[in-house]
Nucleic acid binder design. Structure first.
Lengths: 200, 200, 200, 200
DNA sequence: TATGAATGAGTTTTCATTCAT
DNA sequence: TATGAATGAAAACTCATTCAT
């Protein structure tokens, strides 16, 4: 019944859970390795520092989400529909990895400068892909042109990144419902008023 | 030229700045008192513990925002207009106190349980007041009834609480512009489609 | 019967003894503070780092020896006699502080760069004062002019700094005897041959 | 272009350089094997412990120097001339192996007791051979009898063992010049005054 | 009202060494 | 002959907090 995944993955999973429960600063390396059933040396064999765990946790999630976003963005059909699908999807994967997301956005300011820079660059690539979809919708005339696209993207991801402050798996809304509501609110806000398309 | 405010206020101001720069756990009590030009004993004379500073920082901001919200909510006129004014106002005061907000949302998980409970209760009162405005708008028929009001409030404050991840005083948008755009996006998302009222 | 000296002095004395017994790297901060009867925090209250102890140990000895050298150098009489007195004196104070000397010359390479630089500068001032005496003797015709004065100084202090490899308080020679022999050997080597002055 | 020497020799060479640069305790086994392009297992195949490297480094140099000293000592001619040749030679080989010498005299106190004892015994044999030459010169009447021969040997080797504190290959004096000067100073110090023989 | 020396428990990280392969 | 994952013990240092003054 032992966890059979390779040690690095096991350590990341354990660290994610503990960081989510007690905070990054509130979790000692000792606690992580104890929970993973190994010794500190084993952890430092794979991760050069505690903050490598934090970096890797979000880096992996972001790689996953970037990959998915690119699939949606590269599809066919009107920008609004691709954006809707991508936005619902990112909410669902964010909720599926809520610990990772929460931990990272609470604690990224504790990363050493160069790691912070690296993750910001990765994040920026994600942001720009999403923004391109918004801009496409504005050019198509579906979305109001007066809203700066960067601001519109930040507005949405602010809401997404704060999901863990209120969403709970035992609550009344599942991930799909949250996605539909959030994206509905968001797209209706973006949409050119009086264009007749229904708020979903 | 010395800072003439009472010591507790000076300590809170210094702590806010240092917490924003280096994180709550990344700032030692020693650094705070050195920056304030006093010694530890002086600080412990006014604050029982380091986390009192963190609590107080947000408690004061939240008291201010709650007070302002109540004024707007208690006004006259359609719910939508009162909500708009309150929402723009909270964005403006949030940007005016961005360090306080940032520090708190990054680090509230480090507060001891009872302080976390206290601040959650204060936050809940704020949330409920805001939610009541949304519900009023829904009853009035201005806002779509299908969106759970709690979710709508969380959606908005997610975006607000993440402002510090992208907003910067030297950027192209001032606090008023951000308020107008965010609230515009938000209210258009809430509004009953096809009701003819213009997006902003 | 407790040691009544101020804590910093007590810590330096304890550290000197332990470093001499087990080496700088072989002595933990834990051992130092245990031997001094205090806790680590107390030590770090006075010394910013373990290597501060090492620096301070030699810095104090060197300050003492520089002061004494300057007194001898600034006296009257032939350079040879002032040099002899200074050289005997430095051997005696070196033996009186043999632990300090040994510890430092074994471990100065472990000091961080800037502290190494500081102590080298202090050491250079000492060296130059001593060298000036040698050069004075050469100008007076007492010492052979063909020997580079820097080399002559290094030759002597090489022998002095290695005293701890063989000298022991229980051995047959006391500090005064070592001083006389060493300085005798040294000055006879320096002296212009056939000048008739006796090897002391 | 790879280093073709057998692995043990390569490891010793690499260790010597790193120990000289960063100190014995400041150099990890990991760094040694990385610099040698092998893994830890390979090193532990040839050396039972890290301190074996330190022991071996000096043991090899001392064996070399002992062998050379015995050749000089066993030659013919006056003791002074044999001593001069041996003393110049030991300075030259010491400078040719300055890293080895430096490393050892800085760090021998970190060897485990039995290895320290072994190397002390080897060193003592060297010392005694050198001392015998001094005593021979004293019996021949060339050297002053009043100086304890042990002390005279220690005086000289103090200077030799500290060569690395000031000598540098880019400096004005090459190894031969240092040898001539040091030995000249030394023998003039030892020599019976007024015996007419010239300081070289 | 304030000082600053001292505590004690804790932190992250390092490292020589072992051993199954 | 060599690998490299893993151990376990210890290292230097930090820090919120207390308390006699």
């Amino acid at each position: 019944m032992a966890d059979e995944r390779p040690l690095p993955e096991r350590l990341l999973a354990v660290a994610t859970r503990l960081f989510a429960e007690n905070g990054y600063e509130g979790t000692s390396v000792q606690e992580i390795v104890r929970a993973a059933g190994v010794t500190k040396g084993a952890m430092y064999h794979y991760f050069a520092a505690k903050d490598d765990l934090l970096y890797e946790i979000y880096h992996r999630l972001l790689a996953l989400q970037t990959d998915r976003l690119r699939r949606f963005a590269g599809g066919t059909g009107p920008a609004e529909e691709r954006l809707r699908a991508a936005a619902v999807d990112v909410i669902e994967t964010s909720i599926a990895h809520l610990d990772e997301l929460t931990v990272f956005f609470r604690s990224m300011h504790l990363l050493p400068a160069e790691k912070q820079k690296a993750v910001r660059a990765e994040r920026r690539r994600y942001h720009e892909c999403f923004r391109a979809l918004v801009e496409e919708g504005q050019r198509e005339g579906t979305f109001r042109p007066g809203v700066p696209a960067d601001l519109a993207v930040n507005f949405f991801f602010g809401a997404v990144h704060q999901l863990s402050t209120w969403w709970h798996p035992d609550g009344p809304l599942d991930a799909g419902a949250v996605g539909d509501y959030y994206v509905g609110l968001y797209l209706d806000g973006l949409r050119e008023p009086g264009d007749g398309s229904p708020g979903r």
